[in-house]
Nucleic acid binder design. Structure first.
Lengths: 334, 334
DNA sequence: GCAAAATATGTTAGCGCTGAGATAACGAAT
DNA sequence: ATTCGTTATCTCAGCGCTAACATATTTTGC
C-alpha cells in the first residue's frame, strides 16, 4: 500500500494474515471468530486506519444503514426539533439519516425521494400525507419502511406518527369557550401548503358551531408563518373587527407576534383580548405572560417514528398509527 | 423481470436494445449520444421506473455525490439556518447532504465523521476548529474537501467560512462606547463548548480596556444559551450589580430573555439599561423594541461553504478563508 | 476517392464488500 | 476406529455500476 492509497479490506486481511471474509465478519460481529484472530484483525484495522466502504457494503448486501428524511422546511423550528428526535433515536444505532428539504413542494419531495431511494435506504421518514401519485408509487414499490409524521388524520402508507390536528383545534375551541370567551377571531398563514393548520381550523370551527358560535373575523397572512406575520396580521384583524375577545393563531410563531402587537398597542392581553397558539414552543413560554397554547410533542414524534420503523425491517400487515397526543398549556394569555 | 424485482441498468439496456454502458452514459449525460438512442433509453427508464443505484455508482467511480455535514446542535436555530444555506446551494446540484449532530462533543464528532467518510463523500462541512487529533488526521488523510464554518479566527484545514468573532465583539464594544455607555455588564452561557462566544467576549473586553473601561459585572449561565437562561441570568446580574447601564449578551436568545426580564421588572430598556445581542435573529427584530445586535450571516455561511467546496474537487495549495462579515444592527435597545 | 478525424456504441474488467457454501481441525459419541 | 457435530476459517461469485479501451460508422478535408 502506497502512502496515499486508501486501505481496503484486502489490505487489512493481508496484514492480519487472514481472509477478507474473516475481516468482514469481525467488523460486522457475525459468525464465530477466535479471540486471537479477532484481536489480530482489530490491530490491523487500527494500524491502517481502515474505514469500511459502505457503498461497497451496501451494494453487496443490497441494503444500507441509511434512513431518508424528508422535511418541508428548516426555517420553522418545529422541523429541526423533529429532526432532533430522529437523531436521538438513531444515536444508539448504526443508522445514519439523510435529510432532504422539500419547501412544502410535493414535486420537489418526489425528486428528492428518488435521489434518496437511489441509496437503498432502510426506511424513509416524510411529513404529512400530501404526496404526488408518483411519490406514493415509488414508496409502495420500493419495499422500504415509510413513516409519515406530524399528522394522523388520514390513512398512512405504512406508519403514521403524530397527533390529530382536528382534535387539537377542537380542544382549543372547547378550552376557550369554557373560559368564557365568545367573540372569536382567527389569525392564520398560508395554508395551501399547510394542511395541518387547516385541520386545526376545522376542529376549532366545529367546537364553536357546536356551541352556537362562529369565527367573527378571520385574517390570513399570505405566506409562511412568522412572528412578524403574526404581529401585522393581528393588527389588520383588529382594524376590521375591534370587538373580538379571543384570537386563535395558526401557531405559536404567529401568536408571539400577536402578543408583541398587543404590547405595542397597549391592549390588555387576556382581559381585553385572549391569545391562543399552537405548538408549545419555548419562545411562547418565556414571554412575560406565558402563551396559552397546545403542546405538540415534536421531539417525541421524530423519536417514535424511528423506533417504530426499526422494530421490523419489513412492513407489517397492518398500517400503524401512533398518536403522540397533545396537551393544553394553560399559560396566561387565555 | 418479475413484478417485485427492482429494475437495474441491465433491464433498461435490454428494453432499449442498447448496451448497459450506453444507458449509463445517457443517465450521466456523458459522451456523445444520438438523439434517437437517448429517447429510446429515456423511454425505457420511464417504463420501468428505473432508479440508479448510487451505491453501485459510487463504488465503481470511487466518489459519491454526498456532502457530509457535521453540526453541533439543531436546537439552536443558528445551525438549521446554516443547513438551509447548504441545502440552498446544493439544490441546483446533484449532491446530497448527509447530516450528523455532534452535541458540541469532539469525540462524537470524530465517531460521526468516520461513519460519514465510509460513504466516500466529496466534501465534509464541519463547525469551528475544535476537533480531536484523530478527526484532524482523518480529514487530512482522506482527500475530501473540508470546510470549517462560523469562525475564521484560526487556521483552517482547507476552507474556513465565517466571521471574526473577536472583531464582532470588538465592534460591539466600540458601538456601545460611542453611544455613551460606560458601566458594562455581561450575560453569557456555558462557553466551554462555545469557543466563539468566548472570542466575542475577548473582543468586547479589548474594546473596553482600550478606552480605560472594563466589565463591571459578569454572569454566566451554566448550560446552553436560551431565552429563559437569558431572562434569569440578567436578573441575577442585576441583583449583584444594579448600577450598570449596558448589558452585552452572549447571543440574541439570551438577549431576548433579558428584554423580557426588563419588561416584567419595569426596567426602561435603553434609557436605564441598554441590551445588546449577537446573531440578528428574527425574534430579536420583532420585539416591541428591535434588539440592537450584530448580524451574522448564517445562511450565507452555509451557502458560501458549499460554493467554495464545489469549485474544485481537490484541495487547493493555499488554505482559503472567506469572511462573510457582520453588520451592526442598531435596533432600539442600545 | 481515401485517409484522418469525429461521432456513436459495444466489450470488458473491476470497484470493495458480503453471502453461500466448502473446507479444515478437533473433540465427543457410538 | 469411524461417524458426527461444532467451531473456525477460506473460496469464490457477484451486487450494479463506470472507466478505459475497442470497434464500428459517419463525416470531413484535400
Amino acid at each position: 500500500m502506497t502512502q496515499y492509497e486508501v486501505p481496503t479490506l484486502t489490505h487489512v486481511a493481508k496484514l492480519a494474515g487472514v481472509s477478507e471474509n474473516t475481516v468482514s465478519r469481525v467488523i460486522r460481529n457475525k459468525g464465530p471468530i477466535a479471540d486471537e484472530t479477532r484481536s489480530r484483525v482489530v490491530k490491523a484495522i487500527d494500524t491502517l486506519g481502515y474505514v469500511p466502504n459502505r457503498a461497497a457494503g451496501s451494494l453487496a448486501s443490497s441494503g444500507s444503514l441509511l434512513i431518508g428524511v424528508l422535511l418541508p422546511s428548516l426555517s420553522n423550528i418545529v422541523f429541526p426539533e423533529v429532526l432532533q428526535g430522529i437523531h436521538a433515536a438513531l444515536a444508539t444505532t448504526a443508522y445514519q439519516p439523510m435529510v432532504g428539504v422539500t419547501n412544502y413542494d410535493a414535486n420537489k419531495e418526489q425528486d428528492i425521494l428518488s435521489s434518496l431511494l437511489a441509496w437503498q435506504p432502510a426506511a424513509v421518514i416524510t411529513t404529512g400525507f400530501d404526496h404526488t401519485d408518483a411519490t406514493r408509487r415509488m414508496l409502495s414499490n420500493s419495499r422500504v419502511r415509510v413513516a409519515e409524521l406530524m399528522d394522523i388524520d388520514a390513512d398512512p402508507i405504512d406508519v403514521a406518527v403524530g397527533l390529530s390536528h382536528r382534535q387539537a383545534g377542537y380542544a382549543t375551541g372547547r378550552h376557550l369557550i369554557e373560559r368564557g370567551y365568545r367573540r372569536f377571531g382567527y389569525v392564520g398563514h398560508d395554508w395551501v401548503a399547510d394542511r395541518r393548520a387547516r385541520l386545526r381550523h376545522e376542529g376549532l370551527c366545529q367546537a364553536l358551531s357546536e356551541t352556537g358560535l362562529a369565527l367573527l373575523a378571520e385574517e390570513r397572512f399570505d405566506g409562511p408563518s412568522s412572528t412578524m406575520a403574526g404581529r401585522d396580521t393581528l393588527a389588520t384583524l383588529l382594524a376590521h373587527a375591534p370587538d373580538i375577545d379571543a384570537v386563535v393563531f395558526s401557531n405559536d410563531d404567529m401568536a408571539v407576534g400577536g402578543f408583541f402587537h398587543c404590547l405595542a398597542a397597549g391592549i390588555a392581553v387576556r382581559d381585553r383580548l385572549a391569545l391562543f397558539g399552537f405548538n408549545g414552543l419555548d419562545i411562547g413560554q418565556v414571554l412575560p405572560m406565558p402563551l396559552s397554547t397546545v403542546r405538540s410533542n415534536r421531539f417525541l414524534i421524530g423519536k417514535t417514528a424511528v423506533e417504530k420503523l426499526l422494530e421490523s425491517p419489513t412492513r407489517p400487515e397492518e398500517r400503524v398509527v401512533v398518536d403522540t397526543g397533545f396537551d393544553i398549556i394553560e399559560g396566561e394569555t387565555a
